[in-house]
């Protein structure tokens, strides 16, 4: 058998212009991954439709002096978040667990073998996209819904104290919830399993804890993700909710803790 070239040509050394992996490039890759999937467009469209739809449905049928009279002006308009927590959460889960269920994760971690940049970029891209979409939706929904409330006791405007803060706070809260869900997806690695954990831990657990007759649980419950999100959605302070600052801090900590755990295990586990 003939031996090939005694001096093998290193094929890839000549055209090394800017070959390395950089955080910016991994971000670009994750952004490309996100927008090229149909499920992303579906979950985001549902988020928009549910926010606007529920907001309009509630305000169009609103009557002064009814059961919702003492509800916060922004919370009333953004009640669709009961559903959009799920749509944004599912999107976050699909970003990570979706890669495990399809096998894409093997490609992702082969091209970026240090692994963690993939997780950070996924979280950053999802957080930014969710925040932007929800924020834009909120700023459309509020004036639209207020058009139905002009002659009622819930009449308010963007200029009223706390309104803009609550609209932005809601967007930030949902984006952080999405990142939390993304972390759960990375830990659980299965889409249905992660959705189960998200619904159980974020939506059912607080209800169970709230039933318990201990003072401390109230304080804890107030700072759980879904409750913190609700606090953030208030234009006016209310007696039994966390302040916007501590609510935001709790959500940041929940998302960060979940993501950190996911990072630790991503680094250690086999793919």
């Amino acid at each position: 058998m003939t031996t090939t070239a005694t001096t093998p040509t290193r094929p890839n050394t000549a055209d090394r212009t800017t070959p390395d992996i950089t955080p910016r490039r991994v971000l670009r890759s994750e952004w490309h991954k996100l927008w090229t999937l149909r499920s992303t467009w579906i979950t985001l469209a549902l988020t928009v439709v549910l926010t606007v739809g529920v907001g309009v449905a509630i305000t169009a049928t609103y009557e002064s002096g009814g059961g919702d009279s003492d509800m916060d002006a922004v919370l009333l308009v953004l009640l669709g978040m009961q559903f959009t927590q799920i749509t944004i959460g599912v999107l976050g889960i699909l970003v990570t667990a979706g890669e495990y269920s399809t096998g894409m994760i093997r490609s992702s971690l082969t091209v970026v073998p240090r692994r963690l940049p993939v997780l950070w970029s996924k979280a950053a891209v999802l957080g930014a996209v969710a925040f932007t979409v929800v924020l834009a939706t909120n700023f459309v929904t509020f004036p639209l819904a207020q058009a139905f409330l002009s002659d009622t006791d819930q009449s308010a405007s963007l200029g009223d104290p706390g309104v803009v803060r609550a609209l932005v706070g809601n967007a930030a809260g949902l984006a952080l919830l999405g990142v939390l869900a993304l972390g759960i997806g990375s830990l659980i690695r299965s889409v249905p399993g992660s959705i189960g954990v998200l619904i159980g831990a974020v939506m059912i657990l607080p209800e169970v804890l709230a039933i318990l007759p201990y003072e401390v649980t109230d304080a804890v419950v107030r700072h759980l993700p879904a409750q913190a999100l609700m606090s953030l959605t208030h234009a006016q302070p209310a007696p039994d909710i966390a302040s916007p600052g501590s609510a935001l801090l709790s959500l940041v900590l929940w998302a960060a803790a979940t993501l950190a755990t996911a990072a630790l295990l991503l680094k250690r586990r086999d793919v």
Binding site: K33, T102, I105
Partner: peptide, 26 residues
């Protein structure tokens, strides 16, 4: 590398799949 198990998201096109990988290295 070509791995034994499929390592793609079936919902993407071949072009976009390769682009997501290509971006990481510019």
């Amino acid at each position: 590398a070509l791995l034994e198990a499929r390592s793609v998201h079936p919902g993407r096109t071949a072009y976009h799949h390769l682009m997501t990988l290509a971006h990481t290295h510019g």
